[in-house]
Design a protein around this nucleic acid. Structure first.
Lengths: 336, 336
DNA sequence: TTCGTTAGGGTTATCGATAACCCTATTCAT
DNA sequence: ATGAATAGGGTTATCGATAACCCTAACGAA
């Protein structure tokens, strides 16, 4: 590999002069500057950012840790993050925790040893706390995405899960439904708790009693579990509508329903959080509370970089991006 | 940040001893080993991989460069790559070229300056040649994914575009279609050329003459362009079926058709390359030639690491993963 | 003429970790 | 008892780049 010393030798200057040319610092005559630059091109010089990071104590690398790259929500988020990072001159080191605390742990260690300048962190859930604390202990700035983690104060970009849930349930109620089931993510994820709250509030406000037997809290990814569904369907007074807490769960629920010969929306209305992108483009079927995922990522990186460069207030900033209720055809007026 | 010198001081040994403990090299008594490890934990030591990379001349980082992270094909590929990389002890630096040669260029420079150990490269197209040559000039091992680039010999993992295309068109012909349009990607992408060839061969083998007016070569991402479609539809003898060269194009085509009141599959059959994952799970509608995207990524990383570690043959290896024809309901017998 | 400035560039130490080699007590065999 | 071998660990140079400081010739002002 070509180093500044090779350049220096061939250009008949010292390595320091080369460094000064590269960084446009110090006093260098136009003549030597040109000579050095020419040699750099001739030798195809590429700076070694490891060496650079070592002395500068910064890497120009940010880490993006998400929980599921196959979920369109995180895909779009990643896209936003990447565009934004590139614009600001950072590279993105990418990790996928798979909603698994152990994997998340591994990535945090990787991140620390890489000495990234900051982390955009979508936590797997409440137990991510110790990972965030570890980052903080090592003074790595981070911004939390999507899910709040109790016990940690930090910049965060999230959606409005409670309001989004309320909108969806309100909508179902407006269609005449009162037996509304909730297929939720795990309760140690903040968004799941909030979606549950929104669900509960909407029911209460309309004087509908919450029936615990119509609520299942599981994982955002275990969308195949038909056992949970049986539970709901075998209820003496079964639901007429199901609120799935995310897109995966909705797809799982709908598939499971269809396997049983239950039609959506004729026999059962289904709504959910998060859109399906391509899927919805092809077949505008699911009624959803869509979140601006790309914005999440773009905004997250922006906050992060501001934090890194110290240009932001010391206090934690909370950005809440509203979701949009998109009414399509997976829910319909009851009985019709 | 804690360094091995801090550890050394507190444990009353030299830095070298600490390094030996970390790497399990040299001769260290069990006693000091334990003492050092204890201090490491107490101080929360995390090795600085920049420093490490500098002397070892390797980073344990691989780069994955894809062209479109919002496309489920690349999402799954990335997933496979990531799982595989993690298993083999590598981190993944992630880039999204957006099918844009300039962005790709930028990423190549980033990659070089990061001194990654290898690159998994999904080229934007034939003009990626110079980027690959640059990598080669700098001695960075790489494996090409999905699209071959004429002029460069390297390990490659790709699908069987020609055969997949033939299968799809054969299928359409078996349904009685003979006016079959092709909405293709750009011809400077190898897969687009091969899909075109497969299409042409299938027609020829069945004695159907190829009508150039039924073929459009554009971009794999410009799925909104309805102008191309008008062209096809205004043909004096319009097509009864459309073969879209990838999933995005298929979605675009179907939407455009629907806007014109043309029903799929009643009035027009549509098939395509690549599946839609979630979408297909929700609504098994599109008939596709599905590629094992996860395998692409996993296999790619495996070849790459073998190459890096020098455990593979010197000659370039070509892995071709077959696609699977999944018949659903977006195509039907003509006239019925 | 003489001294202070400044342009232009070089020296040296440093970032954190590791390779290659060196050093000194033991320990063991003879 | 004595030399060789070995266990256990330390020294020094190095990876590539940069910060902080130093040096010298040329020029201008007084």
């Amino acid at each position: 590999m070509v180093t500044i010393y090779d350049i220096a030798e061939k250009a008949n200057v010292s390595a320091m002069t080369v460094s000064k040319v590269i960084n446009n610092t110090g006093r260098i005559s136009e003549q030597t500057r040109k000579r050095v630059k020419k040699v750099m091109e001739e030798l195809n010089y590429i700076p070694n950012s490891n060496a650079r990071s070592l002395v500068l104590q910064q890497t120009q690398i940010l880490s993006l840790l998400i929980t599921d790259i196959t979920n369109p929500f995180y895909t779009s988020l990643a896209r936003g993050a990447e565009d934004s990072a590139k614009k600001l001159g950072y590279r993105l080191l990418f990790g996928n925790s798979d909603e698994d605390y152990n994997k998340e742990q591994d990535y945090v260690d990787m991140i620390l040893s890489t000495r990234v300048d900051g982390v955009l962190f979508a936590p797997a859930g409440d137990h991510s706390l110790k990972h965030l604390e570890k980052l903080r202990a090592h003074n790595i700035p981070f911004v939390i995405m999507d899910r709040a983690v109790p016990g940690i104060e930090s910049d965060i970009v999230s959606g409005d899960s409670k309001q989004g849930a309320r909108n969806l349930v309100d909508y179902l109620i407006s269609l005449g439904h009162s037996r509304i089931a909730l297929v939720n993510g795990s309760l140690d994820v903040s968004t799941a708790r909030l979606r549950y709250q929104g669900y509960a509030e909407a029911l209460q406000l309309h004087g509908i009693e919450l029936d615990d037997k119509l609520v299942v809290h599981k994982s955002y990814r275990e969308y195949k579990d038909e056992d949970q569904l049986s539970h709901l369907l075998e209820h003496p007074s079964p639901p007429t509508a199901i609120f799935a807490a995310n897109n995966f769960l909705a797809v799982g629920v709908i598939n499971a329903l269809r396997k049983r010969g239950i039609r959506v929306p004729e026999d059962m209305s289904v709504v959910c959080f998060d859109d399906l992108d391509l899927s919805s483009a092809l077949d505008p079927f699911l009624t959803v509370a869509a979140q601006p995922a790309y914005q999440f990522g773009a905004m997250g990186i922006q906050l992060l970089v501001e934090r890194i460069q110290g240009s932001s207030q010391p206090e934690a900033r909370k950005v809440i991006l509203p979701s949009e209720l998109i009414i399509r055809s997976s829910a319909k007026t009851i009985g019709k």
